[in-house]
């Protein structure tokens, strides 16, 4: 029985979201908290926030929650999970946090097969600091620190996190989804649920990469931004499952 998206999940508190209009974080947070509600695990869940726009999440959660330092959410989550192995621990991280400053932490959490769930929001930019280039910024994409467009010869091509982590044995579940259409939102929710089930079954590390829109920093209307997920992001970041468990 699925919760309608217009219902406010119990795992959220009453604080209104502070995300920009058209930002995908609102949808993704709804999906994550709906899954937590549906699985009935809210009372045993610890949410680990990040630094960046995703770092607002702890303020909205009606579960136990902690802010982590920039990039260190998987290390915080490791400490929590190792002390409280029967709790459900998840991190919620953006692309600057996870794929740039926190690369070591995410790789090693996956490598250890840490029994945590990571929701990785990829919107190809640093949102909170004002639209700078991220490791996931597409080639040619203009940002405030790549004003002439990302030059692969100068700063490399965008990191594909799911592909990178699929080289690691400890990663038990890896899937890339997008929130650009109702059909894809439903797929995203399924993947998020599977990523929590992975943890509950003790299979190992689970990560869902969500391709997301940042209309404010992309300089687009919300509708245009959703279109860009489809036209530019998905061709470079193919959707699908990269690792699953029995």
């Amino acid at each position: 029985m699925s919760t309608p998206l217009n219902h406010r999940p119990h795992s959220l508190n009453d604080s209104p979201f502070t995300f920009c209009p058209g930002c995908s974080h609102g949808i993704i947070v709804q999906l994550v908290t709906s899954v937590i509600d549906e699985m009935g695990i809210g009372g045993d869940t610890v949410c680990v926030g990040c630094v960046g726009c995703g770092g607002y999440l702890p303020w909205f959660m009606n579960t136990d929650t902690i802010c982590s330092l920039h990039g260190r959410a998987p290390a915080n989550a490791t400490g929590i999970k190792r002390i409280q192995p029967d709790k459900v621990v998840f991190t919620y991280q953006g692309d600057g946090d996870l794929a740039s400053i926190g690369t070591a932490e995410i790789v090693h959490a996956a490598h250890r097969g840490e029994k945590i769930t990571t929701i990785f929001v990829n919107n190809t930019t640093y949102g909170m600091t004002g639209g700078q280039m991220a490791p996931t910024t597409l080639v040619g994409q203009k940002t405030t620190t790549s004003p002439y467009g990302r030059d692969a010869a100068h700063c490399g091509k965008p990191i594909r996190v799911c592909e990178m982590l699929s080289a690691i044995d400890g990663a038990a579940f890896l899937e890339r989804v997008a929130v650009d259409s109702p059909a894809n939102v439903r797929k995203a929710k399924k993947a998020i649920r599977r990523a929590f089930e992975c943890q509950l079954q003790g299979k190992g590390f689970a990560l869902v990469e969500v391709l997301a829109a940042c209309p404010t920093n992309w300089g687009m209307t919300p509708v245009e931004a959703v279109g860009r997920i489809r036209s530019e992001m998905i061709p470079y970041y193919p959707l699908g499952n990269f690792r699953d468990f029995e």
């Binding site: 260190r72 400490g79 929590i80």
Partner: peptide, 26 residues
């Protein structure tokens, strides 16, 4: 008890932070 060798000094300290937040003596 639990011993875990972290991937870095930073990760070790942030694991301590998480473990402390979970109520551990760490």
């Amino acid at each position: 008890g639990l011993f875990l060798q972290a991937e870095s000094e930073m990760a070790a300290m942030n694991m301590v932070m998480g473990a402390s937040a979970a109520g551990g003596r760490v």
